[in-house]
Design a protein around this nucleic acid. Structure first.
Lengths: 170, 170
DNA sequence: CCCCTGACATGACACAGTGGACTGTCGCAT
DNA sequence: ATGCGACAGTCCACTGTGTCATGTCAGGGG
């Protein structure tokens, strides 16, 4: 029984909510974990096929629009339980803006500040979205915890961006 | 002239400092951009081969321990200059701990807090490392800017972690 | 009634990125 | 002399990304 990867494990996790197609799983995942665990349609369909091959999920009869509804098997439930008991690995961040700044001496200073300003808008929007979602009173505490991460993260990025003129100005 | 990807562009960037082998480029990159732009030996060697095929770098005569020293070509310099003029894309974060928390209802609460505690140590260490590096007075302002991001990021993660007991406790 | 649009649904493919295993070289200290 | 650790590169299987292609179905407008 090879280890599950986090993406596959997440799919099994969502399938605890009942039967779902690949399309629905992508939508759910995008919504629920998309801000800190990226996945793509292609990858999801590939994982589902692999999970089916390993007997961790089962596909029901193909429905309208060639929809393939997947359900958890007992083996799938067990594999998920084993996965969540494992300590999670370190995070990876890939932030192209930081690359640009790191190579800032080759960039026109005005252009660089322009790039930063564009990113500031995106981060401010995400912060507002998270805060709006957190205002909802009846919310699962685990989702509240991940949203709170988002708030801390976006706030930190905004604070950093606002400190840049002083650092780069001289 | 297809677009450069950020990894390939970074290698060209580092080669502005003069001739270097794949091994040295991995070391440099790990040190300078490793905290916000992950790359692996395998990928670096593959990119170098591709860059050589496109005429953006040139390999000198193979030296001791089959060392292949690469240098920038004029085309490589031009490709890098074109790349840094482009606006950088959005960041991607993949944080397995957040997945675990998102699926927290299937995890033993004590174990979950244990996972969090382990991560706290790692983040505290990185924060200390960044602050120590920032204490250095003569430092390139661009590196100072990226290190400052690190400080903001790690501080935010620590603050978030410390807010978790309250969120998850109830 | 027909056609168009947009949401639903899957898959193929090429390329990028990761992590481990493997091979070999060389300098140095015991 | 030997054996360890840093240097240097390669291969492979798998995971992840982005785009293109294909087809289905529902509902509204003409």
């Amino acid at each position: 029984m090879t280890e599950l990867n986090p993406t596959a494990a997440s799919l099994l996790g969502f399938l605890h909510g009942g039967e779902a197609s690949g399309y629905e799983l992508v939508e759910t995942a995008d919504l629920v974990i998309g801000d800190f665990w990226s996945l793509t349609r292609s990858q999801v369909y590939r994982e589902l096929a692999a999970l089916e091959g390993r007997g961790l999920v089962e596909a029901g009869p193909t429905g309208a629009r060639s929809r393939r509804p997947y359900t958890l098997t007992n083996a799938g439930r067990a594999a998920f339980a084993a996965w969540v008991a494992q300590p999670p690995g370190p995070e990876t961040i890939r932030y192209p803006l930081l690359l640009s700044i790191g190579f800032g001496s080759w960039i026109d200073p005005g252009a660089l500040l322009g790039f930063v300003a564009e990113h500031r808008v995106a981060h401010a929007e995400r912060l507002a979205k998270y805060e709006e979602m957190l205002a909802e009173p009846d919310m699962d505490k685990y989702q509240r915890a991940t949203l709170t991460f988002g708030v801390h993260y976006e706030s930190a990025v905004l604070a950093w961006i606002d400190s840049l003129p002083e650092i780069l100005g001289g």
